[in-house]
């Protein structure tokens, strides 16, 4: 089962290595990982998606807390968060197929950010399901490249 863990860390060299190293040496897999500074530049947020059972996630969180540079950890409940992922998809598109692709893109409220003779680059943000649905529809045209940021998430409401 996938869990989203949001980790606030001190923004220092080597911190990401300490976190990713912890995952590999304790035998846990990271599905996706997104890192960037918060509003306070001394602090970064790492959003991790891990595939593990409940007990392992508990253990992961406890082990993460032991890292000195880790400030705060939240396990995000899927029912109460806004989650987003940004994906860039480079897809085959010639004069015959371009129109059809543009229609699909519009339905998904995605954006076309680059147009070339034989390709389009589509930018989509949203949940994993939404991205996957678009991906499935574009696949018949030939997806040349797909780049994703990894999931980021925020709890709903005034709680933080």
């Amino acid at each position: 089962m996938n869990h989203i863990i949001s980790v606030l860390v001190e923004n220092k060299a080597g911190v990401l290595a300490k976190i990713s190293g912890l995952f590999s040496r304790r035998g846990y897999n990271i599905e996706s990982l997104a890192v960037g500074p918060t509003d306070d530049e001394r602090i970064s947020r790492i959003t991790l998606v891990v595939d593990a059972d409940e007990r392992s996630v508990e253990q992961i969180i406890k082990q993460l807390y032991k890292l000195i540079n880790v400030i705060k950890i939240q396990k995000l409940e899927p029912s109460n968060i806004v989650e987003r992922e940004l994906v860039l998809i480079k897809v085959n598109a010639d004069s015959k197929t371009r129109g059809e692709i543009v229609e699909i893109v519009n339905v998904f409220r995605a954006n076309i950010v680059d147009v070339a003779k034989k390709t389009l680059i589509i930018e989509i943000t949203g949940s994993s399901q939404k991205v996957k649905a678009l991906q499935d529809l574009l696949r018949p045209f030939g997806i040349l490249e797909l780049v994703r940021t990894g999931k980021i998430a925020c709890t709903r409401g005034s709680k933080y």
Binding site: A13, G14, A17, G21, L22, R25, K66, I68
Partner: peptide, 16 residues
């Protein structure tokens, strides 16, 4: 060395 010992230390520093 900080990379090498990270898994077997409580913490490490590389002073820059």
């Amino acid at each position: 060395i900080t990379g090498i010992v990270t898994p077997v230390t409580k913490h490490t520093y590389l002073v820059k």
